[in-house]
Design a protein around this nucleic acid. Sequence first.
DNA 1: AAAAAGCATTTTTTT
DNA 2: AATGCTTTTT
Length: 804
Amino acid sequence: MSQPPFEDDLFTPPTTGLLKNLNPEQHAAVTLGQEPALILAGAGSGKTRVLTTRIAWLMSQGLVAPGGVMAVTFTNKAAKEMVTRLTAMLPVNVRGMWIGTFHGLCNRFLRAHWKLAGLPQGFQILDASDSVSAVKRVIKAMKLDEERFVPKQVSWFIAGAKEDGLRAKDIEQRDEQSRTMVAIYQAYQDQCEREGVVDFAELMLRTYELLRDHAELRAHYQQRFKYILVDEFQDTNKLQYAWLKMFAPPGAGQGVFAVGDDDQSIYAFRGARVGNMADFEREYRVRKVVKLEQNYRSFGNILDAANELISRNSHRLGKNLRTEMGPGEPVRVNESASDFAEAQWLLEEAQALHRQGMPRQEIAILYRSNAQSRVLESALFNAGIPYRVYGGLRFFERAEVKHALAYLRLIENANDDTSFLRVVNFPARGIGARTIELLQDAARVSGRSLYQSVGAVAGKGGSNLAGFVSLVESMRNLTQGLTLREIISQMLESSGLAEFYRNDKDGAERLENLDELINAAEAFVTQEGFGKDAVALPVDELAPGAIAEGLPNAVAAAAVTPDAETGEIMSPLAAFLTHASLEAGDNQAQAGQDAIQLMTVHSAKGLEFDAVFITGLEEGLFPHENSLADGDGLEEERRLMYVAITRARQRLYLSFSQTRMLHGQTRYNVKSRFLEELPEAALKWLTPRNQGFGSGFAREYQSAWERGSGLKSMVGAGRVETSTAARAPYVPPVPQTMKQAAAQKVGNEYGGLRVGKGVFHNKFGEGVLVTLEGSGQDARAQVNFGRHGMKWLALAVAKLTPID
DNA sequence: AAAAAGCATTTTTTT
DNA sequence: AATGCTTTTT
C-alpha cells in the first residue's frame, strides 16, 4: 500500500473477532481480497452485515484507509444504516469515507468539481416534481400542445434518456414527435443551465461525463478508491453501471464488491437492469460468485413457499434459501367474500396476534397497489386499531414546506425560475396569470431569468412584481449573517407565509410543519457540524489543484471544496437546501405509538416483520393486469411476490377476495395464480378451497390447452364466445362436483348460476360470474376468467357450471 | 382572484 | 370513489 494504513488518529484497531459468528459464505465474502466480487445475497441472509463487516475488516487489516473506501446504496436509509453499524463495529472516521447514495455521492463529487463540471458553485437540485414543472414551462414557452406532450411524460422521457447516458444530440429523431421531444429536452437542459439547477439524473450523468472526459481526474479517483462496494446491484440502471466503471474499470485492480439479489429485482419499470449482475460477472471476470443462501429471518414453511414460487422464473442466477429454524407455522390462506370482509378478517387476525403478545409494529399488511389501502384503513380506523401507512407525502414534499424552500432558494439564487413562479404570488400579492405571462415573454426574449426581467413589465402588475423583487432583496439583506434557524424564521415572517397560515382556519398543521422545518434545519446544522470548530479537510477530498489546508470543514457531506479564488465555502443555507432535495424525509406518516404497518409490497422491500399479511391475491391485481402485457412483466410480479413472502419472520398470511370495489365499481376476481404456485405442504387453508378445482387440476388443464390449437388468439376479452367445447382440443375429466352441479342445472333458467359465484368452463377453467343478462336463447353471462380475461358467453352454447 | 364545476385518471417509486 | 387538474363561472 502506498498510503499509510491509518491516517486517521481516531482509529483504533478492533479488539476481537469481527469475523466471529459469520457463516462460511459470509466469511468468504467478507474476507475476499482486492478483486472483483459478486455476492448473490438472498433475502434475510445478512447482506448489510456482510457489507459493513467487510469494510471494517479491510480497515482492521490495514488493507485500506477510510479515504480509500466507497460504499454506494440506493436510499438514504440504507446509507445511514451502514454508517451506524459500521461505527458500532469500529471507531472510524466515517467522514473520510464515501458512503452514500448514488446521487448523494454525485452531489459530493460535483460540489468538489463544480467549476470543471460547468456548474455554478451553489447549484441547486430539482426533485422530480420540480423537474416536471420546469418541463411544463418549457413546453408552454415553445407553444406546444400539452395534450400531445404531457409534461410528466416528457420529464420521464428526459430522465430516461439521461439514465441511458444520452444527451439530446445523441437521440435518434425518427419522426415529428420524437424530433419535438428532443427539442424539448434540449430547451429544458438550456433552461436548467441558465437557472443553475440540475435534476437527479443530471447529477449522475454529469459525474459520469466528467470522469469520462478527464483522464487525469479519472486516474485520481481510480487511484484513490481501492475498494468500492455497491449495494442492491440488481437495481442499478445503465448509467449507474457505466458510472461505476468510471471509478473502477474492469481490470484496474480495485476491489469492486457488488452485492445483489436478482430475485428481488422489482424496479425494472424505472430503468433497473437485472442484467447488470450477469454483465458484471462477465466483464469483471469474477472468479467465483459467492451465494448467501442461509436465511436468518424466516421459518421453513415461509422459505419453502418463497423458493417454490421463484423457481418458476427463468434466467435466474440460481439460489435457494435455507433455514435452520425449523418449519414453523404453516402459511395461512384465507378467502373472503368481499374486500370489506377481507379487511374485517384481517384486523381480527391481527388483533388476535397482538393479544398473544406480538407488538403491532411487527405486523405488516401488504398490498400491490395503493388504492387497496383505503378499505383496510377505514376498517382499522373504525375498529380503533392504531395503524401507520407508508408512502404518503414526505416531509419536504408538503406544499407549505416547498413554499418555504422556494423562498429560501430565491434568497440563495434569485434566478431559480421554478422557485420564483412557485411563490411569486403566494401568499397572494396581486400578481395574476396575465402579469406572469408578460414577464415570461420578456424573459424569453432577453434570455434572462424572470427575476432579472421584472423591469420589463409595466403597469400595476409590474409594480407588484417590483414589490416582490424588493421583498426578496430585503429578505436577503435581513438574513445576512444569521444562523440557519434565524434565516428560516425571518423568511417565514417577512414572506408572509407564517401570517398566511396563522389566518387560515386549516393552517395549524401547516404551521406545525413549518416549525418542524426549523427543527430539521437545526438538526442538520448540528449533525453536519456547522458552527463547530474548524477541522482540516482531508487532503484527498480536494479537487486536484485546489488548496485546502486549514479551511473549516463547514459543509461536510454537502460541499467540501472552497472556491479556489474567493475561498468561499458553500453556505449552510445552500447546503441545507441540497439536503432537502436529496432527502425528502421520512416516507411514513405518523410515527409514535405501536401501530400496524400498512404499505405496498414495493415499499416493504428491505423490511421484515413477525407477521405479514399479503392481501388482494387476485388475478388482475397481483399479478397486476398492466404487467402482463410486456414480456418480463409476469416474472417481475413473481419477484414482487417473492419479496412480499420473504418479509415474514414467523407468520405469513395470504388473502384474496371474491369481490372488490375498485374505481367505484365492483370487480369479481379469480384468485391469483401465485397461490397455485406455492407448495401445498406449506399451506393451511383457513377457508375451504373450491372443491375439485385445486391448483393441480387447473394447471394441468391449462397447459394441456396451451399445447393445443391456436384458438386462444381468437378469444379476445368482451367477445361473445359461441363455440367452446366443440373446438377445445382437450376436454378434461369432469370432476365429481361438476357432475353434481350439472344435475342442479335442470329446470333452472340460469342453471344455478349466481353473480359473484364461481363457475367452471371447459376451455377457460375457473372463473367468477360478473353479470347475467337476457333469457332463453339470448341468455348471456359475463365471466372473469382471470388470466384468460373477461368474457361474454352465450349460455345456450357455452357450458357453464357453478362451483362451490 | 377565488370558487365551482367539469374532467380524466387510476401499478409499483428513490434520488 | 376519490383525487388532482383544468376550465368555467361568479
